[in-house]
């Protein structure tokens, strides 16, 4: 199933790239290049020949792990992805974590206060967060914490003056694990705004769906009986209702998380964050076909992995779905 999806993605991207206007070879050579030079370059990058043949050539190489060479960077696509992907993974996971914590906490608080007038205010505020997309949040954050109150670094992933060797490209994780907390703090400060920009809209979605599910769970008989066992309201929400309410939220979070990955493209651009989103825009501008192809496939793979992870978690949380 996943293989078919990836194959479909590969075919569509391959065709689209060659249909949209723009020629990588024309971008590479100057206007003075002769027709013969251009033809030679085309042949070198495998850009001559009919489309199906080009695709088969690419597929054959891709199946053994060779995704070609970037036209602009003259490096293998795989090594470029290896260098840029960890930054995006760290950003996306931080955003997902923040969104789940923020959205979950909002839903629990709103449920606690559901007989209060304040809960209407929480709903209204949540509606605003729901309505604004990630790149708007990015701009708001830039204005707030970059310009008005310059607290956070505006661009990049780490202060260029910090000169410590890293064994991997998972800079944040590595510095936390190795105990270099000052470095980790610097990286976290750089990541704060892009993370928040990506997390806030998702947090609003999670808060809304989870709150709805919690409200429904709170009137179930088993919650009533637990109340008669003398449990506190917070305990009722966390121990009795949440477990049964979290399923639909989680499924939706999986879908939304794929939007979050898509959102990294724009948000990484705004904050000049060196991840695959930023790389993707550069690759498209340069018509770097092999790199685009590899990137899109990578995005496809991430989507599939997220969905598998979500499905497994949903099953793990719902005893009735086990052993089937």
């Amino acid at each position: 199933m996943a293989v078919i999806t990836l194959f479909g993605v590969a075919v569509v991207v391959f065709c689209l790239l060659r249909v949209v206007p723009g020629d990588p070879v024309a971008m590479m050579v100057g206007p003075a290049a002769s027709a013969a030079d251009i033809a030679a370059l085309r042949a070198h990058y495998g850009l001559d020949g009919p489309l199906p043949l080009q695709f088969l050539t690419w597929l054959k190489a891709a199946l053994v792990g060779d995704f070609g060479t970037s036209i602009t960077r003259h490096q293998s696509v795989l090594s470029i992805l290896g260098a840029y992907l960890p930054a995006t993974i760290e950003l996306a996971f931080s955003a997902l974590l923040v969104a789940i914590l923020l959205g979950g906490a909002t839903a629990v608080v709103a449920t606690l206060l559901r007989q209060h007038r304040t809960s209407a205010a929480i709903d209204a505020l949540n509606g605003v967060f729901l309505a604004l997309p990630d790149f708007i949040w990015a701009l708001i954050l830039v204005l707030a914490f970059g310009v008005a109150v310059p607290l956070l670094p505006l661009t990049g992933r780490i202060d260029p003056s910090i000169d410590v060797p890293f064994a991997t490209n998972f800079l944040l994780m590595e510095s936390i694990i190795t105990g270099r907390f000052a470095v980790a703090g610097n990286i976290a400060a750089h990541m704060a705004m892009p993370t928040l920009a990506l997390a806030l809209p998702l947090a609003a979605v999670i808060a809304r769906v989870l709150r709805q599910a919690l409200n429904e769970a709170m009137v179930q008989d088993y919650v009533l009986l637990a109340r008669i066992k003398g449990m506190s309201e917070l305990r009722l929400i966390l121990h009795e209702a949440l477990r049964n309410a979290v399923g639909p939220t989680l499924a939706l979070t999986g879908v939304q998380a794929t939007f979050l990955i898509g959102g990294t493209v724009v948000v990484e651009r705004i904050f000049a964050y060196p991840g695959i989103g930023n790389l993707a825009i550069e690759a498209v501008i340069n018509r770097d076909f092999p790199l685009i192809q590899g990137l899109v496939l990578m995005f496809g793979l991430i989507f599939i992995l997220i969905n598998i992870a979500v499905d497994l978690t949903v099953v793990a949380l719902n005893p009735r779905l086990r052993h089937v």
Binding site: Q220, Y222, L225, E240, N244, L317, P319, R320
Partner: peptide
């Protein structure tokens, strides 16, 4: 309770 089918938490 009246209804044993709904009075136990299905997730615990």
């Amino acid at each position: 309770p009246q209804d044993p089918l709904t009075a136990l938490n299905p997730g615990r």
